[in-house]
Amino acid sequence: MRISLVLCLILTLISCKNDSKQNVKTLPEQVVEADHLKFKNKGHELVYKMTQKVGDYSQLANKKDVVYTYTYQTPDGKTDVSNEKYMFNGELSYGKYTKHERTLAHLKGVIEQGYDGNEFWLKHNGKIVTDSSSLKKVAFNRPTNYYWFTMMQKLLDPGLQYQYLQEKTIDSITYDIVKVTFESKNNEPKDIYQLYINSDTHLVDQFLFTVMDFGRTEPMLMEMKYENIEGILIPTKRRYKSSNWEADVSNDPWILVDWSDIKFNNNLGRADFKQ
């Protein structure tokens, strides 16, 4: 039950960061030349330097689109395998699940999910599904998967606040720890990201995050390993579990995420995301 709750919270967390995706038509206006950028503080500058190392959103957007295989496995052995397609302008998203033991598992056979820039849609074995409960999960999954893939670049999105916390050494690696929070509407509590930026590589090796919408103030820890794909550093290997604010993880088993066969510039068009 604990693992299932954590999974639910993870999906909702990232979808909450993207609850306005339905109205997104153009790329985020976040990219500014370094000599013209006025940093809010040291934390903001460190995040900017990180995006210059991995590739910022403009570099990602120049790739036009991406296709890749998404594999997600929970400690109970249940697995999702999806062929993912995104178009960066408009943040369009498509996923074809050939295996979905965690996502809409009650639907047997192939499922397809999409966001075409205006609406979310779902197909089961080629037939349109209009069930509101299933579509609500699609509205979670599509922006969730997109956000995971583009998160490092989107850490410069408008509306984010940065705070430099401290320098800390873990396993002989020195990290600059930066707290990132999101602007709140109606004074509602928002989630916290605590980035561990490797002082040598300028990469986020791991980060802590909360799920405030569900009253979860204790963090979870995500660890990542990167791969250079056509000049963009992508965290293709991920694992996460419950933690504390010192980044000491719990005894829970890891949840594993793998991205493979990543290809940019596939000449995708809006028609590829229509139902």
Rank of each mutant, 00 (worst) to 15 (best):
K185R: 12
K190C: 11
D258T: 15
N265A: 14
V204W: 01
M222R: 07
P235L: 01
Y226R: 00
D213H: 14
V204M: 09
M224P: 00
K185D: 11
A247E: 09
T210S: 06
N266L: 11
K190V: 15
P189S: 07
I262E: 07
I232S: 09
W254C: 09
G269T: 13
G231Q: 04
E188D: 13
G215H: 10
L221G: 02
E246T: 12
D261R: 11
T236I: 15
S250E: 03
R238D: 00
L233C: 02
S242Y: 06
K263R: 15
D191Y: 11
L208S: 08
E246C: 03
F207G: 06
L203G: 01
T210Q: 06
K263T: 15
Y226M: 01
S242N: 10
D205I: 01
K225T: 02
M224H: 00
K190T: 15
T236G: 04
D261C: 08
T201Y: 01
W254T: 06
F209I: 04
E227F: 00
K237Q: 10
D205W: 01
Y240F: 14
N187G: 07
S184P: 01
M222A: 08
N266Y: 08
K185P: 01
E230Q: 12
N267Y: 06
G231D: 05
K225L: 01
N187R: 13
K241S: 07
I229T: 10
